[in-house]
Design a protein around this nucleic acid. Sequence first.
DNA 1: CAGCATCCAAGAAGATACTG
DNA 2: CAGTATCTTCTTGGATGCTG
Lengths: 114, 114
Amino acid sequence: MRDRNSGYGYCPNDEACPVEYTLDVIGGKWKGVLLYHLIEGPKRFNEFRRICPGVTQRMLTLQLRELEEDGVVHREVYKQVPPKVEYSLTDFGKTLIPIISLMKNWGETYKQSV
Amino acid sequence: MRDRNSGYGYCPNDEACPVEYTLDVIGGKWKGVLLYHLIEGPKRFNEFRRICPGVTQRMLTLQLRELEEDGVVHREVYKQVPPKVEYSLTDFGKTLIPIISLMKNWGETYKQSV
DNA sequence: CAGCATCCAAGAAGATACTG
DNA sequence: CAGTATCTTCTTGGATGCTG
């Protein structure tokens, strides 16, 4: 999922790779949920932990860092005590909103049918 | 990605889970590409291997099996020699087309920008 | 509060060889 | 052609303890 270089060298087909590229950005184990919650507005670290009790501290950190690296999420550190860090969607990240919304709708519609 | 039972018990938030559920169906390493190619029409096993040289035989089998289990893909075995197996989207699978298309468009648009 | 470091277990994925 | 089986490697992820 992270081997952007090796992973996409394999597939010479220009029509196929965009889908895989998109999944590389949003397909992490928790990225979908995190992004979905960020649509509503900025969130703090422990806010995520409350919303999704299943995600560990470590995973939350890692997933947020990857989203940050991909330029999808902005990490704002407020220099104060106690520390406060806020995560929000970048403008680039906002371009993903239609996809996340569609996925949300699809999930809502078909979750019970499987 | 496969632990549908344990994975979703964790998250009590009904608004978040649909996204994760959708990703569980289409978020596998190769599922996006496979589904994308199936939009064009039915494909055979080795056809996929030609289109995506990066996917191993084993992975291709596993991913197709999971898509089949999820009712997204239909596997038609023609009883003949040499054997012929055709994979196609089910009606249920076709409901995913809008999502895949959006992901394709997004990937095409932003692939270079990262 | 928002993490990082370390260690360890479990699972995903690759390589290779073989089959109806 | 379309797989299966097995073995090994690599990556993910969880648990725990510590910090500015």
